[in-house]
Amino acid sequence: MIGRGPAHLLVAPGLALVAFVFLAPFLLLVAMSFWSQPEGSLLVDTTLTFKNYIRIFSDAYYLRGLGRTLWLSVATVALALVLGFPVAFWIVRRAGRLRRFVTALMLLPMVCGALLPTLGLVNLLSPLGIINGTLKTMGLIDRAIPLLGTQIGILIGLVQAFLPLMVLPLVAVLDRLPPSFEEAAMSLGARPAQVWQRVVLPLAAPGVLAGAVLVFCAALTSFVTPQILGQGKIATFATMTWQQASLVLDWPFASALAMVMLGLMAGLGGLLAVLRRANWAQT
């Protein structure tokens, strides 16, 4: 048996790496969000100030951006759930030998990163893309319907990108749900809709919650999809932060925007913890 000392030492390199590449820059980010830029300069004044946060919460533009980001994230969760539940159910109950293949297909967008599928969607959604091209060829439209550079376009991209984050936890939960439960409910006279409503859905709730949290956080902080499919015309919190950091070069303000996003996620995490505790208390 290895003693406590050596075991701790084994963790040390990993911890040191995390401290160096994550924790130190993160602390700098926190500090920088309370710094500012002097008038007419892009240099940083390290006097502590709340003015970045005051600007975010007093300017309707940033509040609208926050609202837009939240709405897109919630809509992504809802659509991913509606589309993902039947897929997860099918994988668990009906896919049979195809199960591994279909699961691998589901994972594909996650494995190949956000950029490739998003660029594929550009070909599909652009004014000269497949959808508009087909409609034009059929004589249904003269000018392209705007899909890129709209919230609908971003929503399509977000759902496409994060659907696997909903399906996989659902598959894990539904796997543990024996078909005999549904059969028992039916033998007692429940109609299919009632079986879903009173047996399947309540038992799948932990998977729904896990999937919803994963999809929500991924959509909330997503940058590539809103930037490319929104074409710089739709401001979300991530694209605003990038614009401030990379184009305006106001790093303190960009840091404050990032901190607000982080605060939102932490708040959501706290809320979930409370909900879970309440749930346990009930059961």
């Binding site: 892009l42 240099l43 950091a245 990379s246 184009l247 070069l249 790093w251």
Partner: peptide
Amino acid sequence: SGDRMAKMY
């Protein structure tokens, strides 16, 4: 050029 400005700062 924005990347280079960021690098200089």
